[in-house]
Design a protein around this nucleic acid. Structure first.
Lengths: 147, 147
DNA sequence: TCCTGCCCTCAATTCCGCTTCAAAGGCAGG
DNA sequence: CCTGCCTTTGAAGCGGAATTGAGGGCAGGA
């Protein structure tokens, strides 16, 4: 046992972080943390003699990773995949790039579609007095096969 | 009633489209079509003598509209409202204008959110690193994930 | 006639990503 | 010791949008 931590070591034995503290540090709800543990997204932490979860800096990092991924719109499975990638730093990053690129493409497509819809709505809103026979909302939303 | 269709008229009486065909044409699951009917999103179609649903081109258009709306992330209620707008392209004033403005604001907000998301992802993709260890995606997600 | 592949209704169930609940026990300050 | 907030568990609930299952009926071709 190391009563005093070696600076920078991942083996540092430090005062365990409680779940509440972890939540505050990462901005993740306590219940969500327990949920992530249950679904195996977060590794099970050590426990104190009385059963309290004790987290370390590695958990803080992992949970921040998860949270950022969620913020970027990745679903749980995608985050699992990204975490697996992150666990193999020697592995080429093409896979990670592929995952993110695909997600980016989806987001860009969605933006393009929404911009079309927005334009249609703007025309409806800016009613200049004459009717819009070919409704742009329809154009934007019916979008035959073009995309 | 028009026994013979006028070209281009949406009043065309044509051989009814079956639900399966409608599903194929719109990319919407048969069960989902029946569900949309149940919740009043899709008007009830005529029926054959034996109770089969018979759809026309107007249903195809409406269902495509719904589908695109769902793809864009609108919930059922929003789509209901958009359908009402689309049904009165010649009457954009007063109530419709209010509804359209509201949707416009929502759509603009959604676009803004997605653009931020996109920018986040753009910073991350096309990583030139050779391994996960040097990968920008991972940098973005974990900062310093070492396990 | 039979077979295959549609179609019908209606209720129950799934999915995702949490969130809430209930009942119990722990810990620190005063 | 009391108070009050912390933590524990498993299970249930939620919202929205479907999807599935059971138990049939219909169409049309070989």
């Amino acid at each position: 046992m190391h009563p005093v931590a070696t600076t920078g070591s991942r083996e540092m034995i430090q005062a365990g972080i409680t779940i509440g503290e972890l939540g505050k540090r990462t901005g993740v709800n306590i219940e969500t943390i327990r949920y992530y543990e249950k679904i195996g997204l977060l590794t099970d932490p050590r426990r104190t003699a009385t059963g309290y979860r004790e987290y370390g800096e590695d958990h803080v990092r992992r949970l921040r990773f998860i949270r950022r991924g969620r913020d970027l719109g990745f679903n749980i499975d995608a985050i699992r995949a990204l975490l697996r990638l992150a666990e193999h730093p020697d592995h080429p990053c093409a896979d990670a790039d592929q995952l993110a690129s695909q997600h980016l493409a989806e987001v860009e497509q969605r933006i393009a579609d929404l911009v079309r819809l927005r334009n249609g709505l703007r025309e409806v809103v800016n009613c200049q007095g004459h009717s819009i026979a070919e409704c742009r909302i329809m154009d934007a939303l019916c979008g035959d096969l073009d995309r």
